[in-house]
């Protein structure tokens, strides 16, 4: 494992911890898209079905468990916690996420590495992860104002994607048979979705002003 991948995994973990912290500390999930969180839960559940059949490393197994558990905890808070649930911006979170699930599934059935149950689930999870942030970005754009922790959450998620691209570049040059174009192309698409957010995040940081997205 190279430093880029490790840093990517850590920023991914930090993003989820920031989100849990926001929900726990403020007892509020305003500004957070429940649909995006449910998509991530589905992404992790689909991708990590290999947790019992495929052993890579202790690190991988622990991270898989942490990602599944933390994302399910967030979804549970947003749906089941009496106080948190009330702050959910239901009327702003209207992105038709079932469409994303259906499109990812169709694409996974058409484009995959091998026609097996696990490989199709894996490809599905890669495609779905690439677009899972869309309901969140749309919600932020609609509400205009982005609170600090929500901004940090999306920033760390975007940083994770950027670092994974550096990781693939590194692996491409250091490993003799590194080719995984499904993950790389999806990863590029996913990172591109953050470009707009990053632009405004950078502006607000440079001007030392509150993060605001244009309507």
């Amino acid at each position: 494992m190279n430093i880029f991948r490790f840093a990517g995994d850590m920023t991914h973990l930090i993003s989820i911890l920031v989100l849990l912290l926001k929900i726990y500390a403020t007892k509020s999930c305003s500004g957070i898209s429940r649909k995006t969180q449910e998509l991530y839960a589905l992404v992790f559940l689909a991708r990590y079905v290999d947790i019992f059949t495929e052993f890579i490393s202790v690190y991988n197994t622990i991270m898989k468990i942490v990602f599944i558990a933390s994302t399910l905890a967030i979804v549970w808070c947003m749906r089941g916690h009496r106080v948190v649930r009330r702050s959910y911006d239901k009327e702003l979170d209207t992105f038709r996420h079932y469409f994303l699930i259906a499109a990812s599934l169709v694409l996974a059935l058409l484009v995959h590495e091998k026609f097996t149950f696990q490989e199709i689930l894996w490809a599905f999870s890669i495609y779905l992860e690439a677009v899972a942030i869309l309901p969140q970005l749309v919600l932020l754009q609609r509400s205009g104002n982005v609170d600090n922790l929500t901004g940090q959450y999306v920033f760390f998620l975007g940083a994770y994607r950027g670092l994974y691209i550096l990781n693939w570049i590194y692996r491409y040059f250091t490993e003799p048979h590194f080719s995984r174009w499904i993950a790389c192309v999806s990863g590029l698409v996913q990172t591109a979705l953050y470009a707009d957010f990053f632009y405004y995040y950078f502006l607000s940081w440079k001007n030392n002003a509150k993060l605001k997205l244009p309507a």
Binding site: D9, R47, N60, M63, K64, F67, N167, E175
Partner: peptide, 10 residues
């Protein structure tokens, strides 16, 4: 090799 048969990233 292990790289090609397993999805070793998260």
């Amino acid at each position: 090799d292990q790289e090609s048969k397993a999805h070793d990233e998260l």
